[in-house]
Design a protein around this nucleic acid. Structure first.
Lengths: 212, 212
DNA sequence: CCAAAAGTGTTCAGTATACACCCATGA
DNA sequence: TCATGGGTGTATACTGAACACTTTTGG
């Protein structure tokens, strides 16, 4: 029986040392339909290919992210609107991925836009983002693999505030977030302080224990 | 590009007036592989077919459930183990469905087995069931469409106890469950009592308000 | 000393869970 | 009247959120 095509569209997040918010990797489409329009990195699922492998392939081929820089990948939800792709019926399995810091090789058209206020994207990608964002927000500080790669091994408490604000859409109470961090398994509070903002008290440094 | 096949495998639940527990619809496979072995009703997703439509088709063709008796359908998760089907790489999208009471038309080989202790099934269907069961348990009393069809329009409180026990795997505290029901939107407590068990106090009848 | 940022302590609402006790029925 | 099942009331724990207040810094 002839089937719908299956594409794997990935929400690729980064939150690097220089970034002041979480951003989302998008790239202009090379071919029709929507040629030139920004879109989530997506690939057609290969025969026998696993979802995580397809998501990684989307990031390397569409965003130019080196494979070593893909820190963690997971499943989100499936979208089955039959007219979502003008080429014909296409299932979209949405995945998330977190991108470690890397040095871009040469010029790429990849853009990193805010998740809270994303660019206008091709297909139904804005709808996918809207449905998927609350899931990501709930995953933060709960799933270690996801969170660990976003924060990096060591991070200041104020970075945790920015990260939470970016994913949830609202600034968290810093005190409550502090207690949330205390309860995250594998996360330990160091004696160290760092200055992050121009003024005010310096922030505590948190660190993931080595086995995480 | 050649792709993996996509099958939609459905966890079809029923909890009819005569049933004393929730059961799961399974049917022996007609063809190889696993010919004769019991399996979840599954179909290959047709081109342009939506997931809910495929799940309904699985129930009508594999279990002999008339379409009007399919009360509610929803998405669960996707399984991508490449060797899960000996015919070749096949993605399985797991769905749930709730089956209303109907009169079976003629002989069918469909069996209804307990979800807590299901038969040995073909493919990785037992694994799918194991992963999916906690999701179903969490959905009960939260998603109205799911719960409403399982209970029927009117039901005794003791039926709610049986239902919860079947999905969660442990008997709930009847008093606490009572308060849970009180908090479910669209569910109202009637003045009526009915005798369910041979002895003991008769149970209160709960009823879904018409607009649900 | 003041403003800004970080962190602590406390309170309060909502939920989940446990369990003692009371109520209604058939035998 | 007693065993059985149904239902109420109450205590306890945990979680999330709100917020006043203290601490540490730069200017």
């Amino acid at each position: 029986m002839e089937q719908s095509a299956v594409s794997v569209d990935t929400v690729a997040l980064r939150f690097w040392a220089g970034d002041d918010t979480v951003t989302l990797g998008v790239a202009p489409r090379e071919w029709e339909p929507f040629r030139g329009r920004l879109a989530l990195p997506g690939v057609l699922l290969g025969r026998g290919e696993q979802l995580v492998a397809a998501a990684r392939r989307a990031l390397t081929t569409k965003l130019g992210v080196p494979d070593e820089a893909i820190g963690a990948v997971g499943q989100l939800a499936t979208f089955d609107e039959p007219n979502r792709d003008p080429r014909g019926p296409t299932l979209s399995i949405a995945m998330w991925a977190v991108v470690d810091e890397f040095a871009p090789a040469g010029q790429t058209a990849t853009q990193w836009c805010s998740i809270g206020n994303p660019a206008k994207l091709a297909f139904d990608h804005n709808r996918i983002l809207a449905e998927v964002r609350p899931l990501l927000s709930e995953t933060l500080w709960r799933r270690t693999d996801f969170t660990r790669v976003l924060t990096g091994k060591r991070f200041a408490a104020s970075r945790a505030v920015e990260l939470t604000a970016a994913l949830s859409g609202a600034a968290p109470d810093p005190g409550n977030l502090n207690r949330t961090l205390k309860a995250v398994p594998g996360l330990v509070r160091t004696e160290e302080r760092v200055r992050v903002k121009a003024t005010g008290r310096p922030a505590v440094v948190w660190e993931w224990s080595p086995d995480q």
